[in-house]
């Protein structure tokens, strides 16, 4: 699973609705992998408004990944920034591990890069 996807997923357990806790999910025991991906700057720029930067920053810190604190004024002209962004959100994969919700404690497992976001019977 790539970090762009992680940035789009929140805990969705019933009654777990504290926006500060259900997102972003905290990685636990993860095994990271870097895999080259096709770069498209137009895509990166278009995704910026859809990315929650504060959450991405928090996750990057947890994983010891460098990321600027702020999105630059005109990201489209900032090759270095786009290159970093590309590496972080599209080329950084979580192969195995889990994502934990700080609100309810649900642990979403990631196996072979595929997150299992199904809820248990008591969570729906």
């Amino acid at each position: 699973m790539r970090l762009i996807t992680h940035n789009m997923l929140k805990c969705h357990v019933k009654n777990c609705t504290d926006p500060d806790k259900q997102f972003p999910l905290r990685f636990k025991d993860v095994q990271l992998e870097q895999i080259e991906a096709d770069r498209n700057d137009e895509f990166l720029v278009r995704m910026l408004p859809r990315i929650d930067w504060a959450a991405l920053l928090k996750t990057a810190k947890e994983l010891n990944i460098e990321l600027p604190d702020k999105v630059p004024e005109s990201p489209a002209d900032d090759g270095e920034f786009l290159s970093t962004l590309h590496t972080v959100i599209l080329e950084t994969h979580v192969k195995d591990g889990s994502m934990v919700c700080d609100g309810c404690g649900h642990e979403y497992k990631i196996t072979n890069g595929i997150p299992n976001m199904l809820l248990a019977e008591h969570e729906i």
């Binding site: 699973m1 762009i4 789009m8 805990c11 969705h12 997102f23 599209l90 595929i114 299992n116 199904l118």
Partner: peptide, 15 residues
């Protein structure tokens, strides 16, 4: 093809 994920679309985790 970025990712494939397992969940019920009726109970989806998209922000």
């Amino acid at each position: 093809v970025l990712d494939t994920t397992v969940f019920d679309i009726c109970r989806n985790p998209w922000r």
